[in-house]
């Protein structure tokens, strides 16, 4: 079980302190599928990175399977079964797809197993296994390889940060099937940051984050109409005050 208690994250900017997360509390039961959504800059990625230990919170605590992991390093959390798929995964000159999958699984992965993980993200192992994870790959390809490394961790908690970003429609359909399959087989607790209705529809629960706070929680049928009703595209000031 994942328990987040009164988490806050404040950073010092040029114009003073900025509260990225404020008093965020969230409990995720084992094997649940949670989708975190909300406007850009609302704190979703900061929350995901705080769970992974990449951002150190300035207040509150995080418990994983009953253990307080707030002070643990990224490595220690990874070894306790938390994994995180980056929103914008880094590229590596000289590291091959095979190397990353080996590191992720903690052992030399056989061709068939590697093929299995790559297929789950819509890639053919024959074409990709010996490719360098560098700028020769497109954004969508790197993103799918990133997701494959998270799957290969076989961790208890899988966090994906906008897995749909940059991915074509065909691969995206394959990817949603993969998430559904993990959930159906109860293989892991899944926390996905997403704005895609197809992913939202898979969730047991939607958590809406805006302005660094959780502003709503509930089933997709409760939350989705709210999101649509609140949608304002463009400039708020211009629409309300007629000047910006």
């Amino acid at each position: 079980m994942l328990e987040i208690n009164h988490l806050s994250y404040r950073v010092e900017g040029a114009d003073g302190a900025v509260d990225i997360l404020q008093d965020v509390s969230l409990t995720v039961e084992d094997k649940k599928f949670i989708v975190v959504t909300g406007p850009n800059g609302g704190g979703k990625t900061s929350l995901a990175r705080a769970i992974m230990g990449i951002n150190l919170p300035t207040g509150g605590s995080i418990l994983w399977n009953g253990e307080d992991i707030t002070a643990l390093s990224v490595t220690e959390r990874a070894r306790r079964g938390i994994s995180y798929g980056f929103q914008q995964p880094p590229r590596f000159k000289g590291m091959k797809v095979r190397d990353l999958l080996d590191v992720a699984s903690g052992e030399k992965m056989g061709h068939d197993t590697a093929c299995d993980y790559l297929t789950k993200v819509g890639l053919c192992a024959r074409d990709y296994i010996d490719r360098d994870v560098d700028t020769s790959l497109s954004g969508g390809e790197v993103k799918r390889i990133e997701i494959a490394t998270v799957l290969a961790r076989k961790s208890g908690l899988m966090i994906f940060d906008e897995p749909e970003a940059g991915i074509d429609l065909w691969s995206f359909a394959r990817l949603t099937d993969t998430f559904r399959e993990i959930h159906d087989k109860k293989e892991a607790t899944i926390l996905i940051i997403s704005h895609q209705e197809r992913i939202l529809r898979l969730a047991d629960e939607i958590v809406l984050i805006a302005g660094g706070r959780i502003t709503a929680r509930g089933s997709v049928d409760e939350i989705y109409p709210k999101i649509m009703a609140d949608t304002v595209v463009g400039c708020n000031r211009l629409e309300v005050d007629r000047k910006c």
């Binding site: 990224v74 490595t75 990874a78 070894r79 980056f86 000159k93 000289g94 490394t149 961790r153």
Partner: peptide
Amino acid sequence: EQILKLMTLGLTAEEAEQKILEGFL
């Protein structure tokens, strides 16, 4: 970010650095 990525896969910062250099060279 490269080091962090490999840390999320369970390596320590030192192991991550070593892995990155190995691949690079």
